[in-house]
Amino acid sequence: MKKIYIIAGVLILLGIGLLISAAGDMSTYSTFREAARIEAKVKVVGKLAKDREMYYNPTEDPNYFSFYVSDNEGEVRKVILRGAKPQDFELSEQIVVTGKMDGGDFLASELLMKCPSKYKDEEVFLQKES
C-alpha cells in the first residue's frame, strides 16, 4: 500500500466528516410559530404584508425599520430590522428574514428580498399607457 493512498484515504475520511458537519449547518425555512418555539436564529420565508404599516423614520432612529410579514402558514408578524430600510423594499414579493422571535415580534439581523422581474411591471405600464 502506498503511503500516498493512506494519506489520501485519511483526507477523504476527514473530508466526509467535514461534509457531514457542514450539512448540520443547513437549516430549513421556518415559520414564525416554529421560531417562537425553538427560540434560536432561523430563516423565515414569507410575503410582505403590503396593507400593514411600514415604518422607518431616520430622524428618530436610523437603525430601526419595521414592517409586517405573512409567513408560509399565513401568520402575520411584525418584523424589526436593526438597520436602514433597503432600496425598493415596497416592490418586494418574497422576503427571507434571518433572526429570532423577541416577544411577539421577529427581530431580524438580515433580509433578502426577491423583486418581481422588471419585465412584468413594464408590461403593466404599457397596458396602462395605451
Partner: peptide, 16 residues
C-alpha cells in the same frame, strides 16, 4: 425535505 442555505453563510464557509 427542503433545506435552506446556512443561517450565517459567512461563518459557515469560513469555518471550513
Amino acid at each position: 425535505w427542503h433545506r435552506s442555505m446556512p443561517v450565517d453563510p459567512i461563518t459557515h464557509y469560513n469555518r471550513y
